[in-house]
Computed example of a mutant assay.
Amino acid sequence: MGVIRRGANGGFKGKAGSVIGSSWKSIDYIKGLYKKRTKPATEEQLMQQAKFTLLMRFLLPVAPFIRIGYGQRRADTQTPMNVAFKDNINRTVTGSYPDYELDYGQIRIAEGYSAGGAESATVADGELTVSWDTTLNKVYKQEADDAVYIVLYHPGTDQFMTTPEPPQRMDGSATITLPAHFQSGVGHVWLFTADRKDKNVSKSVYLGEVTLG
């Protein structure tokens, strides 16, 4: 795919001969028409497709968090989802084809400054409690009203949970009441923070695997 930097007539949209013109974020692109594949995919291509599918199945349901967590990373030329995918693909997919798995401890749903270290997640009586340090670090421009985004993933049901409303840094903790189908097996928990404009974002922290019931 080509990018139109300059030109006598500028960019164009639609089909023109063997190329298609389009525009995204004020950048004009041209690409060739899709050609139907006549050769079977190679093993290497199948491996890449399997990795892509596995990771995207995880990332797509948490797209609202990705938009915040990666919203400031090369947002002028790529979508937050594209940046998140590239950041995670080589680090998180493990195993051998076709039995790939995700290393949950390596997954990031936000990329930014690195701070903290006192975060924790525990489960008791059908509730997940996540705690964090309320001390403000002015070097990282942290504020008491920073939003705290929490993500719980349950591999057994392939579903996610979060708080109804993001708590604030000043709260120090948040509790999620687990529905019945979440109260078995294990879960994985992540946390990251963002200011009120979702501009100053922290790197997501993996809080580990928790026993749900």
Rank of each mutant, 00 (worst) to 15 (best):
M1I: 04
M1H: 07
M1T: 07
I4S: 04
G7M: 05
A8F: 11
K13E: 11
G14I: 06
K15D: 04
G17C: 08
W24R: 12
K25N: 15
S26H: 07
S26F: 01
I27F: 10
Y29K: 03
I30P: 01
Y34W: 02
K35T: 11
R37A: 14
R37I: 00
P40N: 09
T42V: 07
T42D: 05
E44F: 04
F52I: 03
L60I: 12
L60R: 15
P64T: 08
R67A: 13
R67Y: 08
G69E: 07
G71L: 07
Q72E: 10
R73I: 14
D76R: 12
T77L: 11
Q78Y: 14
T79C: 05
P80V: 02
N82V: 07
A84D: 08
F85W: 03
F85G: 03
F85A: 04
R91Q: 09
T92W: 05
T92V: 15
G95P: 07
Y97R: 01
P98T: 05
D99Y: 11
E101G: 10
L102E: 09
D103E: 15
Y104C: 09
G105E: 05
G105Y: 06
Q106D: 06
I107W: 06
I109W: 05
E111T: 13
E111C: 11
G116T: 11
E119H: 02
T122V: 11
A124I: 09
A124R: 14
D125K: 05
D125F: 01
G126H: 07
L128Q: 08
V130R: 12
V130F: 08
D133C: 02
T134E: 06
Y140A: 10
A144Y: 08
A144Q: 12
A147D: 09
A147K: 12
L152F: 10
G156E: 10
G156I: 03
T157K: 11
T162H: 07
P167W: 06
Q168E: 10
Q168D: 02
R169V: 02
M170K: 15
G185Y: 12
G187I: 07
G187S: 09
V189P: 10
W190K: 13
L191Y: 03
F192E: 13
A194D: 02
D195E: 01
R196G: 03
K197I: 03
K197W: 05
N200S: 04
G208S: 09
E209H: 08
V210W: 09
V210F: 08
V210R: 12
L212E: 06
G213M: 02
